[in-house]
């Protein structure tokens, strides 16, 4: 049991939200597939965070490499 609790502490942390919001979510998720407010909040945050992370994408291809790739794609008949 102690091991399970320790693992839980390592994997999860606490975030505060207003109690009324907590109650709203609790009633909103009743009867849905979500089994807890934490599960719902995690789901929603993952959705939002992944959208925000899209803004930070790095381009891996240099101009020179792009030219080489375009040449290869032409040679293979893709372009």
């Amino acid at each position: 049991m102690e091991g399970v609790e320790r693992e839980r502490r390592n994997r999860y942390t606490t975030v505060s939200i207003p109690v009324p919001l907590y109650e709203r979510i609790k009633s909103l998720i009743a009867g849905t597939g979500f089994t807890s407010v934490s599960q719902f909040v995690t789901y929603v945050l993952r959705d939002i965070v992944s959208e925000m992370e899209k803004q930070k994408v790095q381009d891996a291809v240099s101009e020179e490499e792009r030219k080489e790739i375009v040449e290869k794609l032409r040679r293979l008949g893709y372009l």
Binding site: A60, V61, E65, I69, V70, K72, L73, Y78, L79
Partner: peptide, 11 residues
């Protein structure tokens, strides 16, 4: 992947 990405952009 870097090649398909360039390809989609070109298309």
């Amino acid at each position: 992947p870097k090649e398909t990405r360039v390809l989609f952009e070109q298309l």
